[in-house]
Amino acid sequence: MKHAYLIMAHKNLNQLLRLLRALDDARNGIYLHLDSRFREADEVDFAGFLNFSCFHSIPRRTVEWGNYGIVQTEFELLRAAVEEGPYRYYHLLSGQDFPIKSQSDIHHFFDGQDKEFIHFADPSGWDRVMQIRLNRFRRPIYQIYLLSEFLKRRIGIRPMIDFGFGSNWFSITDKFAKDFLAKRRWASRYFINCICPDELVLQTFVLTFGYENHLAAAVGTGDETASKRCIDWNRGGDNHPYVWRAADYQILANSSAMFARKFDTEIDEDILRRIEETLL
């Protein structure tokens, strides 16, 4: 069964084209959103660039860091893919992500799964995150979070909304994708005025609507296990993922993850070349 790749890109056309080439497979559908400021990509015939994959693009918008536009874009990509599907899995990637396994390896792995690959950060740090993300623009939402925490810890009753936090890059099944899309209005109601809502919406959906048992890894498990993404948060600084270099090749080659982020050919191009030549 086919897989859908949902890609959000905002810079570096040549790197994006390399990503598309790495995903170009008759077993894949590719759904692309280009930020409206990504003028370098205006004249590119992306459908003509691909030889095997079905290609779709969605209307361009300006996606600002930290606002709800990124969540809207994720929903629009997911909706476009679900309407063309069904697909076995839906993989959300940025234009700075890259596969570190071949398409045959990726399909073989996910076709043997029925779980959702969603990352949750260590719950011990959630209180501070929620204070910043939810309280910055809409104080009542933060009060709901405090109430939900009180109910969980003191009474044991499932709260009206159970907030979670983690990375927004996912690999999810068709049923989960449809269930998540059905809650688009719910997501807007709670998160439209938050900062960085893309790191809250999916995890909160999982916890609030009882999907914990659908996860591939327990809440709080690291990226490689939970989302099959190899991401280094320790060396990036300022809460940004580290940009992989050629010197890191062995880390990626030995990883159990299917994808890695992040890459930037303006910083190091050799790492992508080595992945293309030896891993894909």
Rank of each mutant, 00 (worst) to 15 (best):
M1V: 12
A4Q: 01
H10T: 05
L16K: 03
L17W: 06
R18T: 01
A22C: 01
L23P: 03
D24K: 00
R27P: 02
N28C: 04
D35L: 09
R37F: 12
D42E: 15
E43N: 14
V44G: 00
G48E: 07
N51K: 15
C54E: 12
C54F: 06
F55N: 08
P59H: 04
R61A: 10
V63C: 10
Y68C: 09
V71A: 03
E74L: 08
R79H: 13
V82R: 07
Y89C: 02
Y89F: 08
L93N: 01
F98E: 08
I100G: 01
S102G: 09
Q103I: 02
G125A: 11
R128K: 13
M130L: 14
I132Q: 15
L134R: 05
N135H: 06
R138V: 11
F150S: 14
P159F: 03
D162N: 10
F163I: 13
G164F: 08
N168C: 12
I172C: 01
F176R: 12
A177F: 00
W186Y: 11
W186C: 04
A187Q: 07
S188E: 15
D198R: 14
D198T: 05
E199T: 08
V201I: 00
T204L: 03
T204N: 02
F205R: 09
V206Q: 04
G210E: 09
G210I: 06
Y211R: 10
N213V: 03
L215H: 00
L215Q: 06
G220R: 02
G222L: 12
C230W: 07
N234H: 11
N239V: 10
S255P: 04
K262E: 00
E266A: 15
I267H: 13
E269V: 06
I275A: 06
I275N: 00
E277W: 05
L279E: 03
L280K: 01
